[in-house]
Nucleic acid binder design. Structure first.
Lengths: 352, 352
DNA sequence: CACGGTTTCGTAAACGTTTACAAATTTTTT
DNA sequence: AAAAAATTTGTAAACGTTTACGAAACCGTG
């Protein structure tokens, strides 16, 4: 059906081995025959069969991308970086959507291993590593990495992010600062953000009030409901740090629908800087992650590991800096920019 | 390195052909040996090599998904449907992001054909078909289809959508209704929406005012600027139909930042119903597409074609109904629900 | 117990490449 | 002009499966 290397061989009156060498620019083929082979190939509109090639070379130039939810704007942003980077280096990527389900994660990893991908980029949901699949394939974790992962990862310093967010609110002068997080799917990223929150309290010698720490999931409605019951109960802080922007936007609406104002009655800061947070009507202060860059770094790391063959070399843990973005939901910038908290120690270095 | 069918054969003391038959539940293998083979396979943690399998069967159980921009919330919504549907039927999908670039579209199609995908789902950018690649692979177009495409497609009735949006604004009693569209990347979908706009004017015997028809690209900022210059020029309609929600949201902010109110000073309706349009602070009226369902329909169509082998059978053109969603940016519902415009004739039928 | 019919199994070829090795050809050296 | 060296080419094996075909083993029947 499809035209193969043998068809070319016939037309060009050489053996198919020579055709293979000519097409792959291998050393040791006469320039004249190479020319002839290439011209025949073009004429027949030859497309090499990547599958056959993969079988013998044991390399598919294919990656898996496992993420919890394409529909959550955070992930497409990093996926864009991954796709672009992979494409530039000759790899194609399989899209795998887990719906925040760890069992689906496991299934996908097994599937990808059957498809003989050369590696996977994984934005995992849990905070513990999956012993059944760890090490099955070269992996780079992105945006969240399980505790004591034995693989490389590209994340931001979530503790620092949580610290920056909380510090900002404290610096604004708010007496009480609450925290709304997601517990349903505990991730290291989330744990760390809470940790950063606590650190800020410690630094400022303030006491944490458990009533002002709430947990839900990662949906807008949840944030909406949580804040509304807090307000209804007349037990709410002056400011809130929400663990991600989607939650924060829900909270924002919850506050307004209860007839209170942001930031005058309750100030608010989110995390992630999804594109909609910048919208005029929302103007959510937040902690920004370099999402696309994280994606690029992750593929580059992965492909480097694959191509250098030292997949088993010391895993690299790239930890990027989060950035405080002050919009209108918190307070005007305080200007105090002192680096009270040193950056969290990274196991590896941060490139470029 | 990896455990193969031969390793199993050895352990189970049968030929590897028998192993293959046992693993694939083929007819003609003794229940006892099958049991033995399966148990050895499990014990050795065998994972079939999809690449080798693909080589001989000439089927990769792999699809390509080509879309213009993962970062635009419309596309992840349909991608989610596609991914889920494909996964359920045993297919994996390659993510291909074209950045609204037709040359990248062509390159991706060629690449996918080298990877021997069984078919592709394509949300194309142009309105003309690419003669170089058309027919190279079984294809289903989604969300936009080139004029006289020879392949199946799943789209909504964009003429009707444009009509519904415009009619809604006219019914609200606005004297003048403008149109803001994207011209940079002309698509059939966009052309049709404008067509629907014009149809509504014709039905109502109103005259179209060219000053109120503007074009830009598909970015928020563009909508923002377009409306601001209109307002600055003191030449703007009472209501605006924007060709997509991203544009509409830009317009929304543009209006507010000029000190005017929505809908009191200028009413607004968008198209697509991306998730953020529903946000409390935005409340954009819009025309909704069943995005996830479109994705599912598209994969199902594609896989049916692939598996039935009649890829060359008459292409099916599935045309779904758009739905008017009235929020707060236009006017209260008018209640007039008469079906003035018959649905656009479809070349095929709309399945259950 | 011979025989035809089933059922189970193994051998071999095939899928489209890459690549080690050897053969053939050309070029260089003496 | 022969020998040696270098270049170019072909043959064959390999990658891990599936599957057509035929051989072997088993079954029941007369």
């Amino acid at each position: 059906m499809n035209v193969t290397i043998k068809d070319i061989a016939e037309q060009a009156r050489v053996s198919y081995a020579t055709v293979s060498r000519a097409l792959n620019n291998k050393y040791g083929v006469d320039p004249e025959t190479r020319r002839r082979v290439l011209s025949v190939a073009k004429e027949l509109n030859y497309r090499p069969n990547a599958i056959a090639r993969g079988l013998v070379s044991n390399r598919s130039f294919t990656l898996g991308l496992i993420l919890p939810d394409v529909t959550n704007p955070y992930f497409p942003a990093v996926a864009a970086g991954i796709e672009a980077g992979a494409q530039e280096r000759g790899y194609s990527v399989f899209l795998c959507n887990t719906n925040w389900d760890t069992r689906r994660e496991t299934n996908y990893i097994k599937l990808l291993s059957e498809r003989r991908v050369d590696g996977i980029i994984h934005a995992p949901v849990g905070n513990t590593l999956n012993e059944e699949t760890e090490g099955l394939l070269p992996t780079v974790y992105v945006s969240n990495a399980p505790k004591n992962a034995r693989q490389s990862s590209v994340i931001i310093d979530n503790i620092r992010g949580g610290y920056l967010a909380t510090k900002h609110l404290i610096d604004c002068g708010y007496e009480s600062v609450g925290f709304v997080g997601v517990s349903e799917h505990e991730t290291m990223a989330n744990n760390d953000r809470l940790e950063g929150y606590k650190t800020a309290f410690r630094r400022y010698g303030k006491e944490i009030k458990q009533d002002y720490i709430k947990f839900g999931d990662f949906r807008q409605e949840t944030g909406y409901k949580i804040i509304q019951t807090m307000i209804a109960d007349r037990s709410y802080p002056q400011a809130i740090f929400a663990e991600n922007d989607v939650l924060a936007i829900g909270i924002l609406h919850g506050i307004k629908d209860m007839g209170l104002r942001v930031p005058d009655d309750i100030a608010l800061i989110g995390f992630d800087d999804i594109s909609f947070s910048a919208y005029q009507e929302i103007q959510l202060s937040t902690i920004s992650q370099p999402k696309e860059r994280m994606g690029r770094l992750a593929v580059d790391l992965l492909i480097d590991e694959i191509e250098s063959g030292d997949a088993k070399a010391a895993p690299r843990r790239v930890i990027l800096e989060p950035e405080l973005i002050v919009r209108k939901s918190s307070c005007r910038s305080t200007g105090s920019d002192e680096e009270l908290l040193p950056r969290t120690e990274a196991g590896g270095s941060v490139p470029g």
